[in-house]
Design a protein around this nucleic acid. Structure first.
Lengths: 215, 215
DNA sequence: CTGCGCCTTGACCGGACGGTCGGTCGGGGG
DNA sequence: CCCCCGACCGACCGTCCGGTCAAGGCGCAG
């Protein structure tokens, strides 16, 4: 916060960064323009000089977050290209590190996607979510076409489960971390591989038919 | 809304119900006492007559939601008691129907648990989450002790994955429902059983050793 | 019928909100 | 050199927030 009489050097970028942090932390309604200006080291009026309104500022924050994650998704997809089962584990790992590498933007997008009511940036966030989902579904479909994965499993269901594993472990990491026996939650190698193994074994072609239920 | 001169009959319960719906829909900050009073068909002052403050009202709402879900968890646990693998599928299904049977309270609790910042009812919500988590972990441990499930999988990791499957499919149902091929998201029989099957096959004892990586 | 509590009410409060405005400042171009 | 323009500021506006309060109507005991 600048002393009275001094001028700050805070421009668009500083304001945008401050807004990103605060919005991610507490959500749209709980954050005031004053708080954003204060963290950016500038005045409230200056925020309105750079952004038309609070909603416009929020939308700008969301747009940045979305473009960042869309790019990361594409990268993960290219890395896992045409390797079927191993690609699925790689993709899961990529999800893990992606979320943890940029938890602020991740939280922003996830809140917008998973909140039920009509949100301000929902359209933006859902687009990147949809793209990601389609990528995962295609991966499972490839595995089934190659005969590696059981084809009696709806690939969309498997995709939901895989994304769930990544997203939920990220969302709930602060709760789980303090539970006994759950020190693995940020360890991509330990937890991510365990998940990948379970998911892959569970879907492997012809391992077991439904209907059997004896131990 | 009552006409001027008329009196409303809205008591504690109506106000609590209105507050529950609105808080679940939009979160604490986005809901005003006026809005709650209006939906309950009474005046703002009357809300303060029945509840000390906005926070006290919110806490009451959270307490009701938590006790409801704690009871449901216990019920599901007793229903699945001592049946190991089949019990796990039953528990997963119970989670599914529990969340979908009371989506309003479910959303309230989940938001409080999964939000990172210090929330108002976080302590309450995390308690029921912890209890639920411990129940699932115990279930997996029993399965391992009985030799049905692979004992080289950390039971806590499996529990995270199972709860993730249930919670995430519930959280994201509004997004997923409109995606092609994802019409199963509210179908407990179809999606729940698929998930249970994948999870169970993936964890079955001695199906495969880690280290193998051929398709 | 009278008097007495208990609800419920509209009016009201201080304060914080999103947003506007007049004006100051400093650096780059004629 | 000056002047112009975008960045920036303090002060301010109307609104709405959470919360308070005195007054009035209703049910009930006497």
């Amino acid at each position: 916060m600048p002393q009275p009489g001094q001028r700050s050097t805070a421009g668009r970028d500083e304001i945008l960064a401050a807004a990103t942090d605060l919005f991610a932390e507490s959500g749209y309604d709980a954050v005031s323009i004053q708080a954003i200006a204060c963290r950016a080291g500038t005045s409230k009026a200056n925020v309105f000089h750079h952004f038309r309104s609070k909603e416009a500022l929020y939308l700008e924050v969301m747009r940045a977050a979305c473009s960042r994650f869309a790019a990361a998704s594409e990268l993960a997809d290219r890395g896992a290209e045409h390797r079927y089962t191993e690609g699925i584990v790689d993709f899961l790992r990529a999800d893990f590190v992606q979320l943890r590498a940029d938890p602020v933007h991740a939280h922003l997008i996830l809140r917008e996607v998973l909140e039920s009511g009509p949100g301000r940036g929902q359209a933006l966030a859902r687009d990147v979510f949809d793209d990601h989902f389609r990528l995962v579904v295609d991966l499972f479909r490839e595995g089934q076409a190659a005969g590696v994965l059981a084809d009696d499993v709806v690939p969309e269901a498997a995709a939901v489960m895989m994304i769930a594993a990544g997203v939920f472990s990220f969302q709930s990491r602060h709760v789980l971390r303090h539970l006994p026996g759950v020190d693995f939650i940020d360890d991509v190698d330990r937890y991510g591989d365990t998940m990948g193994r379970i998911l892959l074994n569970g879907m492997r072609a012809r391992t077991r038919q439904p209907g059997q239920d004896e131990s």
